[in-house]
């Protein structure tokens, strides 16, 4: 039932994920943060099988952190994405695969460009201007096809994101109530209010 969106704009990536932690039909928690900071300029929204998600996200978080400690600079977004994708692809053919879908948003400080990757639990990776996971994707992707502008300033990007969230709230029976929205740009990561 998780819903997550992400989109790029002029020099930034916006990542949004709902904040409900559910078990079966019961809502256990309403302020769960499902977007992890993997570095000074890298965000990861995760969704999927409860249990797998947090475990996998922490595994990734710590390995990416280890790389940064060892080498004094973080992995660049494309390299981090490739490594995370491979982790999932290897996991898929292991004895106990992770069922985790990811949206990876980052800002490359050496080329000054925003990057967004759509990754699913199979290890499928696509470099995209906007992306979504979960039931929300069936409503949001067509809206993003129409309204997304890769050169849009942050305010416009947020407006487009709000459109997606509103549409999901309006049309999806099991729509989540609250979202957390984070942005990554040249200044790093921060949370924004919609």
């Amino acid at each position: 039932m998780d819903v997550s969106f992400a989109l790029t704009g002029k020099g930034y990536v916006l990542v949004a994920a709902d904040t409900t932690a559910a078990r079966s039909i019961v809502k256990m928690k309403g302020d769960e943060d499902k977007i992890k900071s993997l570095g000074p300029h890298l965000l990861m929204a995760y969704s999927g099988e409860p249990g797998d998600t947090v475990n996998f996200a922490e595994y990734i978080e710590r390995n990416i952190r280890l790389y940064q400690i060892r080498n004094l600079y973080p992995l660049r977004p494309p390299s981090a994405a490739s490594w995370i994708r491979r982790s999932l692809a290897d996991s898929l053919r292991s004895r106990s695969p992770y069922s985790v879908n990811l949206l990876l948003g980052g800002y490359d400080t050496s080329t000054y460009t925003p990057h967004l990757y759509w990754i699913d639990y199979l290890g499928t990776m696509a470099t995209v201007p906007f992306a979504a996971h979960g039931y929300g994707s069936y409503f949001a992707l067509s809206l993003l096809d129409r309204y997304h502008d890769p050169e849009a300033p942050l305010e416009e990007g947020l407006a487009t994101l709000k459109r997606c969230i509103d549409e999901v709230s309006k049309r999806l029976v099991v729509a989540p109530g609250k979202y957390k929205v984070k942005v990554v740009d040249k200044d790093g990561i921060r949370e924004v209010e919609l």
């Binding site: 080498n71 490739s82 490594w83």
Partner: peptide
Amino acid sequence: FLYNEDIPVEM
């Protein structure tokens, strides 16, 4: 193979 990037020189 692991990171899909050329190895950094210092590494």
